[in-house]
């Protein structure tokens, strides 16, 4: 509204793609408090949950139009505009983790390709930054046990982005829904199995009330990060120091989000098992193999597109070098864990 006082802080209207109760609202708040403190109150972020202004999947349109100044989301939520969006988080798993791929974004050429996609190809009026390399996402929640590819046939399953293409290729019928709509959709019979992201988010929206088998370890979304979107005009109009605070605040929140995720995800996984009678499984090798084969097929299809091929070439070059180092260098953590906490791990 009009009549803004000269001294008052610049209010940033930021909406997330998460329901108000999701732990990711807390993660987003870790970002906004950092920004507000660093700017000494010159910036104030009005943080809103999904649906407050627009739906979870519409934040990109809203940022582009300036209906929102900023958004806290993931790129797969706008992959209806271009499938390449999914490569910035939910793409083929070459062997690297989300940390590896966040490294690719900042040091391996990802950010340039992202800018080319959003600004040149789609003509979107936004800037985007990536932060918080997420833990690999569980294969998700099923009413009955699933151990073979045959068991998956005919399921109506919720996931997003290229993961949806992937599981469709494996014989599932896939619906993409925002997190807040998963349990209602399950009750309505729109879907009969789903994944969202992690033990904390999943349990906060009540996954354990509608399914009891939780499958960890999967290649469908093993390297995602948050996307922080800003309307370009809004961002350009800020003083350079405030721009820097918004930009580097993403890096700061990335570390604090990682610590919070460690603490909460692990505690909530324990709670799901002990308090809610959820059975935690590891996804079978047969299904994981089938996932990689399905990725192969998908990669071949997507490489038909020149731009998407360029992204994948860039990612492969990065992972081939970086992950070789990561894996060759990494000690066997499971061995040490087994040594100090014998008999717990069931890999």
């Amino acid at each position: 509204a009009p009549a803004v006082l000269a001294q008052s802080p610049i209010v940033v209207k930021m909406q997330t793609s998460w329901p108000a109760s999701d732990i990711w609202m807390d993660f987003a708040r870790e970002y906004t408090t950092r920004v507000e403190e660093m700017s000494a109150g010159r910036l104030k972020i009005d943080l809103l949950p999904a649906g407050a202004v627009v739906g979870a999947f519409q934040v990109m349109d809203a940022c582009n139009d300036g209906v929102l100044d900023a958004a806290h989301t993931v790129p797969v939520y706008w992959y209806g505009k271009h499938k390449a969006a999914s490569f910035f988080g939910t793409g083929p798993v070459w062997g690297g983790s989300a940390t590896t791929m966040l490294g690719w974004f900042y040091q391996g050429g990802g950010a340039d390709l992202y800018r080319e996609l959003t600004q040149d190809i789609l003509g979107l009026n936004v800037y985007g930054f990536m932060g918080f390399p997420m833990y690999a996402q569980p294969f998700g929640w099923f009413k009955k046990e699933v151990s073979t590819v045959e068991d998956l046939q005919g399921f109506k399953y919720r996931t997003v982005g290229l993961a949806a293409d992937l599981l469709q290729a494996m014989g599932m019928s896939v619906a993409q829904l925002p997190g807040g709509e998963i349990v209602p959709a399950m009750e309505r019979g729109v879907i009969d199995a789903f994944e969202f992201n992690n033990p904390s988010s999943d349990s906060r929206f009540g996954a354990q009330d509608v399914a009891k088998n939780y499958y960890l370890s999967s290649y469908h979304q093993a390297s995602e990060s948050f996307e922080f979107l800003f309307n370009k005009d809004f961002f350009d109009d800020l003083d350079p120091d405030l721009q820097a605070i918004l930009k580097y605040g993403v890096e700061a929140a990335s570390t604090s989000n990682t610590a919070s995720a460690m603490d909460n995800y692990s505690a909530d996984l324990e709670k799901l098992q002990t308090e809610h009678g959820v059975t935690v499984h590891r996804t079978s090798k047969e299904i994981l193999d089938a996932q990689l084969k399905a990725w192969d097929q998908l990669i071949a299809d997507l490489e038909q597109d020149e731009f998407m091929k360029r992204i994948m070439d860039s990612q492969r070059a990065w992972v081939e070098r970086v992950t070789y180092y990561e894996l060759m260098n990494a000690p066997d953590y499971a061995l040490a864990y087994e040594h100090y906490f014998p008999g717990k791990l069931k890999l």
């Binding site: 202004v53 627009v54 739906g55 519409q58 349109d61 809203a62 139009d65 300036g66 209906v67 729109v190």
Partner: peptide, 18 residues
Amino acid sequence: NRIFDLFINQTYTVMSNE
């Protein structure tokens, strides 16, 4: 004015309300 974008966005939300 952003209201026009909001209006269209909300209209589309009704149109795609499952």
